[in-house]
Design a protein around this nucleic acid. Structure first.
Length: 549
RNA sequence: GCGCCCAUAGCUCAAUGGGAUAGAGCAACUGCCUUCUAAGCAGUAGGUUGUCCGUUCAAGUCGGACUGGGCGUGCCA
């Protein structure tokens, strides 16, 4: 990549110019895309940032650096000082053509790097307890999580997708009671629906399934059977929904296994031994305050039952023990407060909490006719993810959720989603891919044989639209790496839209299959490269790349 | 009260470790299909980036105060 070439060059030019005593490390040199084409392909602001500490005008510094720059003309054709002291670099065409070739050579692997070095990473997401179908809220997390997992894979990590759930808590008890109440209703018995019970219709379906399987003989002592049946049915639904979205988890981790394996008990013991747990008012407290947190927290209630923090700590200890070098937790905004305790707990046990990266995404705000609706599984005031998929399709759902930053509060209206789905940018990108494929097919049908890459004269690609497209395409690996490192999957859809736009623009102005066979060959390379980038980009975000639309 | 997140075009959102003239899509308006897919292209219009201070050569981006919204703040998960 060109930045990897330029940074050391600039760094060494600074050293040679002797304008500063402290050397500037290559990675500290910022290279960005200038706002305008006439400013070149990369702009470096180092002279501006050095101006202050060196007490020297930026233009003078820039000139001093420029004098010492030794660049290969086959890579950089021109360097200019502009504005208040920017150093602007202009890529040479030969470099562009070389990079373009690389796209075709690497094909489906284009954009993949090995910076992760095959290290084990884990992404935990969704992790909804099986109390009801997934809602449009869960959908956001499911798609963000899956895409981040994809990105890490493209970065060269070996990724495990994991779903953590708890089927022994109070929620599941209430679920069983809710099913029992509906079961009684089916039998025509008088029943009292639990006050905080799950009101969704799916509970009635489960009750019917229970009735079919176990007959009329169940009573309130059989809550466990009801729970297990409900859990099985709901989990199957959840898995089906996820599969429809193309999401498959490697591990479903049950919290209760942390008790049966003794991990939870071990955490308690270790915390006590290290002096980070103490008893007060018959409860066991974790000394979170020792890690800069505002207050200590209860981990074992006076009743002897653990709070959620304890198994969460044990779970993360388990993750680390499984050898993950990178652990990504994706939570909704409601978990904001809990994770610092968990990280502190991990640290208290002498483990490396820096391997754990917690990503908090903001909620989906559900509206109906302009009115905000509070989404609640218990009250069944939610739109299911299945409903949404039904209405607008998997492609739109995935793209829709990914276009936004994690911090963005996503306002969601099913009616609006239906209406705007037809205008969804996902089709814009897919259409570009279909168009590309159609051109390649047309060329093939016309009997145009693709000749070996090394025999093609790419220098014929010199129209501004062609150069613009090449420059954008070769930026793909950089983009993938940046979005992976920063956990910002929304950059991918945004970039793909840009690629589609620049391609459409090129298409409009120039014919690919022309009377000039050499030019045709060169343009087919460009079109093929576009196909590869679009396809690979869509793959990362889990959207199909249709060859026809 | 306290903590975290957000506020950018009429609407939904972008803006790559502060960087040069804040960009797309939708909606509105004007053009472009005998030629590789018009689910497309070109163009017009739309903005004091919630308000006020501050830091900086440079602020949508960093800091502070305020306004409005979301989520939390439990020996519930």
């Amino acid at each position: 990549m060109i930045k990897d070439y330029l940074r050391p060059k600039i760094s060494s030019a600074i050293r040679k110019s002797k304008i500063t005593e402290e050397p500037i490390a290559p990675e500290d040199i910022s290279l960005e895309k200038p706002p305008e084409e006439s400013f070149g392909d990369f702009a470096c602001n180092i002279a501006l940032t050095l101006a202050k500490p060196l007490k020297s005008p930026p233009l003078k510094i820039a000139e001093a650096i420029l004098k010492q720059l030794e660049l290969d003309e086959s890579k950089i054709k021109k360097v200019e000082i502009a504005g208040q002291g920017y150093i602007n670099f202009f890529l040479s065409e030969s470099w562009l053509y070389q990079a373009l070739k690389e796209i075709l050579q690497r094909d489906e692997a284009y954009g993949k790097t090995n910076r992760g070095g095959g290290k084990k990473a884990q992404v935990e997401f969704v992790s909804a307890n099986p109390t009801g179908p997934l809602s449009v809220g869960h959908g956001r997390q499911a798609i963000i999580g899956d895409s981040i997992a994809n990105l890490l894979e493209w970065l060269g990590y070996k990724v495990t997708r994991e779903y953590y759930f708890n089927d022994s808590g109070n929620q599941m008890k209430v679920l069983a009671q809710s099913v029992f109440a509906r079961y009684q209703e089916l039998l025509g018995h008088h029943s009292v629906f639990p006050e905080s019970g799950y009101q969704g219709d799916y509970i009635r379906d489960i009750a019917r399934a229970v009735l079919e399987k176990y007959g009329e003989k169940l009573n309130e002592n059989d809550l466990n059977i009801l729970k297990e049946t409900a859990e099985e049915i709901i989990f199957n639904e959840i898995k089906k929904t996820l599969e429809r979205l193309g999401i498959v988890f490697d591990v479903y981790f049950n919290e209760s296994s942390l008790y049966s394996s003794g991990k939870v008990q071990e955490v308690v013991k270790n915390l006590k031994e290290k002096g980070f747990a103490y008893e007060r008012e018959e409860a066991l407290w974790f000394r979170a305050s020792a890690f800069g947190l505002p207050e200590d927290r209860v981990i074992l209630r006076s009743s002897g039952e653990p709070t959620y923090r304890l198994p969460d700590i044990a779970y993360h200890v388990d993750k680390l023990e499984r050898g993950f070098e990178l652990i990504v937790d994706i939570f909704g905004a409601d978990h904001q407060v809990t994770y610092p305790d968990v990280l502190a707990g991990v640290k208290a046990l002498g483990l490396d909490d820096s391997k754990i990266k917690v990503l908090i995404h903001q909620f989906v705000i559900l509206t109906s006719g302009g009115q905000k609706v509070k989404m609640s599984t218990r009250k069944a005031t939610f739109v299911t993810l299945d409903q949404l998929i039904e209405e607008v399709g998997v492609e739109v759902v995935r793209f829709f959720y990914l276009m936004r930053r994690l911090e963005s509060h996503l306002e969601f209206d099913l009616e609006l989603a239906k209406k705007t789905s037809e205008e969804n940018p996902v089709y814009y990108v897919q259409y570009a891919h279909a168009r590309v494929c159609s051109i390649l097919k047309y060329a093939e049908e016309r009997g145009i044989k693709r000749i070996p890459l090394r025999e093609i004269n790419l220098e014929l690609l010199k129209e501004p639209e062609e150069i613009a497209l090449i420059k954008l395409l070769i930026n793909f690996p950089d983009l993938v790496e940046a979005s992976a490192k920063k956990y910002e999957p929304h950059r991918i859809p945004s970039y793909l839209q840009e690629v589609a736009g620049v391609f459409h623009n090129f298409y409009q102005k120039h014919r690919v299959v022309t009377g000039n066979p050499d030019l045709t060959q060169a343009r087919l390379v460009l079109v093929d490269a576009t196909r590869i980038v679009l396809k690979n980009g869509l793959k990362i975000i889990g959207v199909s790349a249709p060859e026809k639309m």
